[in-house]
Design a protein around this nucleic acid. Structure first.
Lengths: 196, 196
DNA sequence: GTCTATATAACGATAGAC
DNA sequence: GTCTATCGTTATATAGAC
């Protein structure tokens, strides 16, 4: 008896089931029959709810991204100093991994491939938008003297982005360390290093 | 006119072509026709050289891993102190990304999926072996006083592993920063942090 | 070593009954 | 909202000629 996704409508329920499979097995490697089997219906019945398999992953990703970037915007619009904002963005990202693990995993694993299709062009836009968020904060941090000047900012950006999101590969809710703990430790390493 | 893989035999040539496609498009998403097209032959002709598409990725991954873990073993067997060994493992890893980008990318993207098949059980073994390398060095570093004691070692291990290998997603040979430069900056961030 | 030709299976998707 | 039934396509892989 495994935990089942809680959803308000049959449509959302099916999307949650699909997201779990896409995240675990990959988009291309998940068949519409896999999704239907997990939902206890036949594959043809899925097409009463959705146009195509692509439409399903599209809705999963766009819904998630709208929510995530809303939170980014709130942080940027706030009055905290650059370092505090940077910490806040890191914490919101780990929270997203905790609350929307499947969506984050799908984006991490499939964005490159899906991005080659016109209907997923918004994925590249979101990537650019995300880069702007981080680069702005990092540059402000260097200007204000909070961050060291001898590092390549572009590389630091990639470093932070990658370290945060790649955690979705191993993080599982309910483990020894909460997503708050993990964010704390990541920020400690990032800001101060592991040398004693 | 793009650069073509240099290989000693037709077999190796085909493997290099397949590796490029597997790394770029994904294993499942690359068809044997894609590979044959890139090689300028028909799909059926591939089966003169290989049993199956799985055999191709199997040979690509196992060959690469044998080489990589040979280098790890050399470092561990040396007489350097824990911190120097840790730095050496990081540098060898970035060198692998530089010299075997496709193989690293395939392992990063497909290991979870391929690992579900019996013939790829060695991938999980290699993962465990890799974890042993890092955890041994980190624990020695903490014991010797070189590394701080207030961090979760398991988390630090994942942090290092992920940050190193995920670079394969954006690193391209010939860019502004060499793999040596990138290793330097990563080690600086990891060991000392980005705070000024 | 490659080609022609094709077997076989799995895939996404559709039409209409219930 | 789901089922029955199936279409059309694409995939891996095979057999034998050249």
């Amino acid at each position: 008896m495994t935990a089942q996704p809680v959803a308000s409508s049959r449509r959302d329920e099916l999307l949650a089931i699909a997201a779990e499979l896409f995240a675990t097995k990959g988009f291309k490697n998940t068949t519409v029959r896999d999704i239907a089997d997990s939902a206890g219906i036949l594959s043809g019945s899925l097409y009463h709810h959705f146009d195509s398999k692509e439409s399903m992953v599209d809705e999963i990703l766009s819904t998630f991204q709208d929510e995530l970037f809303g939170k980014y915007s709130e942080i940027l619009a706030g009055s905290a100093d650059p370092r505090a904002k940077l910490e806040a963005v890191v914490r919101v990202s780990f929270e997203a991994i905790d609350q929307h693990r499947n969506e984050v995993a799908i984006f991490q694993n499939e964005a490159d491939y899906l991005g080659t299709f016109d209907r997923f062009a918004y994925l590249a836009d979101r990537n650019q938008q995300s880069r702007d968020v981080w680069m702005t904060l990092l540059n402000e941090g260097v200007s204000s003297g909070a961050l060291r000047k001898d590092l390549d900012i572009e590389l630091v950006y990639r470093f932070i982005r990658d370290t945060v999101w790649v955690a979705v590969r191993w993080y599982r809710p309910g483990a020894k360390l909460s997503h708050h703990d993990i964010a704390d430790q990541y920020l400690t390493i990032l800001l101060d290093g592991i040398t004693s």
